[in-house]
Design a protein around this nucleic acid. Structure first.
Length: 932
RNA sequence: GGGCCUGUAGCUCAGUUCGGUUAGAGCGCACGCCUGAUAAGCGUGAGGUCGAUGGUUCAAAUCCAUCCAGGCCCA
């Protein structure tokens, strides 16, 4: 007789091979069809909300691993909060305006651009953004990210644009918005401002000159040796044309400076360390150091400008170096970024007497009208004539050029709009707001605090086409800013109807409310501003445009979650716009993740060739593996990805999947409605399994709460591999397979398995969205089974499953079991046995263990998966294992024949004439099976 | 150059807050078993000078300093 047919072997259609890349798209289509997201919203209406506000990715290009990481993490959080009992909507968004899109559109248009108006270019940009929103939306959905994909927020939607304008006006209304000059990259031939991204660096030969700046003040106070002495500070520059705009000379506060006697009527002052080198350059063979002093001694002393009748102030600045030059830096706040910054600190004018075409204005006297680069020679000649030019050389260095015309660009101060950090106490309020936010990890607080503390006023204007205009008017007469409540309201409504395009399409008269005039001079000739806003302002007001505006959301958000670069970006701009207009941060907590790096921890770059694209991983392994990768990593640091790492995750995935598959196979004939065994009547080991399960639940619960997904991954995997596969399920096979199908012993095991599987499916659902659903579909229905695991909740707490006393006993058993397996392995190596069922073991233990194990003596053979197990007190003869003289394990070949049915060796095999090949236990179980 | 952060077995992570027995886990690897989870399952084993150096201490993966490597943001 073939006894195999009398066994209850696992049976399931749940496939062993996941085939994720093929299966996932079908599953996604099913969720879409059943309207999973909408259904979740309906079913959780009225629950406590959890709002994770999505930071908008830029609508350009395909998603990369970093964006995938970010969206998957958000999905973990939204889904786990949802399952924990919240109403957790997820509204994704896109950042649509800005230079990169405009830039790409310009490239695509090529020459055609010349013939197009701004409105037309804006239309092209809009189309471009729409195209990539569609692409990215599909890519995000493919990752299994659940959200309101049909109603995302777009920073270019009319409503959003109207909000941007309104929020900008809000800063204008309270006086925070002001106009001032600031140097920016400027292309003289294209006559346009350039962003950093539009600059190409190339080698360029420039003049390199050393110029004396005569010191006006007496330096006797600095050092007695200088009393009554004439002296000149020596500066070095590669842009002689910026000298007419010189307002200061900067020294480094930490450097030592020296006064050098070169045999002329005045001393030369420069950094001590550079004296020797400079003297060689100037051609002075004989010279002597008169004295030396710290830079601070010279601070706020005055020099005379070599060309003009005005002073140049000596100031201190950290950006001064000893690499080249003299350690004394010519400073023109209108023509240099650092010059500008330090100039602000000393209250210097942002002076730039250069027009749009790069020509000197009338103010500079006899260089007026000259192109600045061409004026270099004339300026040098003039300096030489005045006897202040110490040396003139040529230097080859990297210099910024225009990406379009390839000509060298200049730094030129132009009129820009700023939001003041001080005027209305924005900095102070923002710093206070930071401390009311929970930063995860905690160092996020230091990071953003330092940035807010030190940042200059926010320059919000850009001279570009694709964006939202700074919707203010200025008086043509007096230049005053003209804005009032009526203006704000009218612009908001116009934008709501027509988008920001209306600002460019209509002229000023059509935009302003009737009768508006300048509050300063009463003039009625007004001009609309044509600069657009920094895109960081766009996304920065998403809290107003999205959280406040949508009924399904709420202000402030519970959480913002982005990469750690956003302390400078979106967290920062959102904080400023929210604090500036509403007095507090738009988020209660901010969570940051690191960057995706390669196997060596290096950043991904095309040139290194170490870029891993999400699409490749999805096609090869499935989005589920990508999600598992995110869950396995501690994302607070940078996280590594490589083929090796992914292969490891595929293995981990297989282990989880197969363990669940095995459990499904054993629930094949189990109906939870009728077959569940009461907890109190369950076998000890089954209750121990539930105890362990409860520990896992609690751990996972805490981990989800704290967004520590890697803890869940490791616990889940460990539970499947160690607690279940290697121990519990392995031990259970005998009972599940050989017991009568409906016996209480078997139902007890099935009850435990059922609870375990139900719990695991729910616990893994936020992470392994596809697999959890697949398991769920195959699970027996208890009559309350939701249509999708994602409509189900987290497993309810089961304090009744905790039994510490029981656990203590079983942990002791497990300790003995590991000693038994060691002994069995030894016996196997000695060719005494093959399968563990070929063996009988004798376990000798001390008194304490004996008392603990004695009640389980009858079960030991099944726990150890051997044919016979004997428990004795004290040492065992010929023990293969002797553990600290407390536990002995002896192994011998099992007695009796191997039962054809249960494979256990037993002396009773052959005793029954009708079933000569099987043991008495099996005969009993067969009889029981038939009687039911 | 500055601010913030990271560095524990081949890989992913515990342990570091508040120093204290031979630094843990899983995977992978090696070897073996099984063939009733089978493109599965079980067992055993080998892997670490805790990035480096110096210091504090009776005692350092843990505290301090410097350096090296890497990341983000500035310059």
């Amino acid at each position: 007789m073939d006894y195999k047919k009398t066994l209850n072997l696992p049976r399931t259609k749940f496939p062993m091979k996941a085939n994720l890349a093929q299966r996932e798209p079908r599953q996604l289509a099913e969720w879409e069809k059943m309207g999973l997201y909408e259904r979740l919203r309906r079913e959780s209406a009225g629950r406590r909300r959890f709002i994770l506000h999505d930071g908008p990715p830029y609508a350009n290009g395909h998603i990369h691993m970093g964006t995938a990481l970010n969206k998957i993490l958000k999905d973990f959080i939204v889904r786990s909060r949802q399952m924990a009992g919240f109403d957790a909507p997820y509204v994704p968004g896109w950042d649509c305006h800005g230079l990169p899109i405009e830039h790409n559109v310009e490239k695509e248009l090529g020459r055609r651009k010349q013939t197009m108006g701004q409105a037309e270019i804006r239309r092209e940009c809009r189309k471009y953004a729409e195209k990539f929103i569609d692409i990215q939306r599909n890519e995000f959905k493919r990752l299994g990210v659940l959200g309101d994909w049909d109603n995302p927020y777009l920073t270019m939607s009319y409503r959003y644009e109207a909000t941007i304008a309104r929020e900008c006006c809000s800063f204008a209304m309270d006086g925070s918005l002001y106009r001032s000059k600031k140097p920016i990259h400027w292309c003289c031939s294209c006559q346009t401002a350039l962003a950093e991204a539009e600059i190409e660096y190339a080698d360029e030969t420039s003049p390199s000159i050393f110029v004396e700046f005569e010191v006006v003040d007496d330096l006797g106070g600095v050092n007695p040796a200088l009393a009554g002495q004439k002296a000149a500070v020596v500066i070095w520059t590669t842009t002689p044309w910026t000298l007419p705009a010189n307002l200061a000379v900067a020294l480094h506060p930490d450097f030592v400076y020296a006064a050098v006697d070169v045999g002329r009527e005045h001393l030369l002052i420069l950094a001590k360390e550079l004296v020797e080198q400079c003297m060689a350059t100037f051609g002075y063979e004989k010279y002597s150091l008169v004295c030396e002093f710290g830079a601070a001694e010279l601070e706020k002393k005055n020099c005379r400008h070599p060309l003009y009748d005005r002073n140049s102030l000596i100031i201190l600045a950290e950006h001064v170096t000893l690499d080249t030059g003299t350690g004394c830096v010519h400073t023109a706040p209108g023509h240099g970024r650092e010059d500008y910054e330090v100039g602000l600190r000393y209250g210097l004018d942002v002076y730039a007497p250069v027009d749009q075409q790069g020509r000197f204005t009338e103010e500079v006297g006899h260089f007026a009208g000259q192109m600045v680069f061409e004026a270099n020679a004339a300026i040098n000649a003039r300096l030489k004539e005045l006897g202040v030019l110490l040396a003139e050389e040529k230097i080859e260095h990297s210099y910024p050029h225009c990406w379009r015309c390839k000509r060298p660009v200049i730094f030129r101060a132009t009129s820009q709009w700023f939001i003041s950090m001080e005027k209305n106490g924005l900095r102070k309020k923002a710093l206070e707001a930071i401390d009311r936010v929970s930063w995860i990890p905690a160092w996020g607080r230091e990071r953003i605090y330092g940035m807010i503390e030190n940042r200059p006023d926010w320059c919000v204007s850009r001279q570009r086409a694709w964006g939202v205009p700074i919707t203010v008017f200025t008086c043509a007469g007096c230049g005053a800013l003209v804005i009032d409540r009526q203006v704000v309201k009218r612009i908001y409504e116009l934008f709501l109807q027509n988008g920001a395009d209306v600002w460019f399409e209509k002229d000023t008269r059509e935009l302003i409310p009737e009768g508006l005039s300048c509050p300063e001079c009463g003039g009625s000739r007004l001009q609309k501003e044509t600069d657009i806003l920094d895109v960081w302002f766009d996304s920065g007001v998403s809290h107003a445009a999205v959280l406040e505006a949508r009924d399904d959301l709420r202000w402030p958000a519970d959480l913002y979650l982005e990469g750690s670069d956003q302390h400078r970006g979106w967290f920062h701009s959102s904080l400023l716009t929210a604090v500036g207009t509403r007095g507090q941060a738009p988020y209660k907590a901010v969570l940051t993740h690191g960057f995706v790096v390669d196997a060596e921890g290096k950043k991904m770059s095309k040139s290194l060739g170490n870029v891993v694209a999400p699409k490749e991983v999805i096609n090869r392994y499935g989005a589920e593996i990508l999600r598992l990768w995110v869950s396995a990593s501690d994302y607070r640091d940078d996280i590594r990805i490589s083929d090796n790492i992914l292969r490891q995750l595929v293995d981990a995935y297989r282990r989880i999947r197969n363990t669940c598959r095995f459990m499904l196979g054993n629930l094949n004939d189990f109906d939870p409605r009728s077959d569940c065994v009461d907890y109190g009547k369950m076998e000890d080991i089954d209750r121990f399994a539930l105890h362990r399960l409860r520990q896992l639940m609690e751990k996972a619960d805490r981990a989800y709460e704290n967004f520590e997904f890697h803890v869940i991954h490791h616990s889940l995997h460990n539970f499947c591999a160690v607690d279940l596969s290697a121990f519990y399920l392995d031990v259970l096979k005998d009972r599940l397979y050989t017991s009568a199908p409906r016996s209480q012993a078997r139902r007890s095991a099935q009850t435990a398995i059922y609870h375990i599987l139900d719990t695991l499916a729910r616990l893994m659902a936020p992470i392994l969205v596809f697999t959890a659903e697949e398991i769920w579909r195959y699970m027996p229905d208890d009559g309350r089974k939701e249509a999708s695991v994602h409509l189900a909740g987290m497993p309810p707490a089961r304090p009744d499953w905790t039994d510490d006393e029981l656990a203590r006993r079983w942990e002791a058993i497990l300790e003995i079991r590991s000693l038994v397996t060691k002994a069995l392995e030894q016996a196997r190596a000695d060719k005494l046995i093959g399968h563990s069922l070929d063996a009988g073991v004798t376990v000798g233990v001390d008194k304490q263990r004996f008392e603990l194990l004695e009640p389980y003596a009858g079960q030991l053979r099944s726990i150890f998966i051997v044919s016979q197990a004997e428990l004795v007190r004290g040492p065992v003869e010929d023990a293969l294992v002797n553990h600290e003289d407390r536990v002995y394990v002896g192994v011998r070949p099992a007695e009796g024949e191997k039962c054809q049915r249960c494979w256990v060796h037993d002396p009773t095999v052959g005793a029954d004439g009708s079933h000569p090949g099987i043991c008495s236990r099996c005969i009993g179980q067969l009889a029981e099976a038939e009687s039911r």
